[in-house]
Amino acid sequence: MSCLGLDRLYRYLDRDLKPEDAAEVEVHLAGCPRCREEVELRRTLDQAASSLPDLEVPADFAETVMGRIIRAEVPRKSWLAILSIGLGTLGISLGTLILASGQSAMGLLQGFGRDSLRSLQAVFLLVLKFFKLILLAVKVLPELAETGLHGLSRISASFPAGILAFSAVLMLILISTCVLGFRRSFLVRNDIGEDA
């Protein structure tokens, strides 16, 4: 057997070789002082590396972290309290309103139903008008576009071709920079945020 390669040597030290391969290595080591010394050197370095000193953790570390967690949770809980108080107040106000109106709850509900129907009718009319406006815009737009294009071609005719080409390239660079920049920041953010 030839001298040990690094991969085999480290696998031998990690006890990662099959028993027959490990036995073969041991036979080789018994007769090769050079490889024996290399194995011993790396074994010593492994032992030293595996017993590096701990970095000192402050005694109150866990309390400090828990303190930060509690501080972060309290504002969230106070928002929940505000929301509960708000909803509670709304409920009490509605109850008081029903009592003060002197009407039965059913009567109030019927009134509310009638009002809702009227509101729905108004919204329906509004949507109809909106569609009419869109139809009008569709009729007018082609004329507007034609006028715009005509104006643009007159402007471009008054500039030399070089300036126009330069402006087009500049616009292209600007747009691609924006798109690429957005893509990059989006990808980086996603990558970092993964798993945590």
């Binding site: 030839s2 001298c3 040990l4 390669g5 690094l6 991969d7 085999r8 040597l9 050079r34 490889c35 010394e37 290399e38 050197l41």
Partner: peptide, 14 residues
């Protein structure tokens, strides 16, 4: 990849 691996790699002789 690692520079060289396998049994063909010659260890650095001290």
């Amino acid at each position: 990849p690692l520079e060289e691996d396998g049994d063909g790699f010659c260890l650095q002789i001290p």
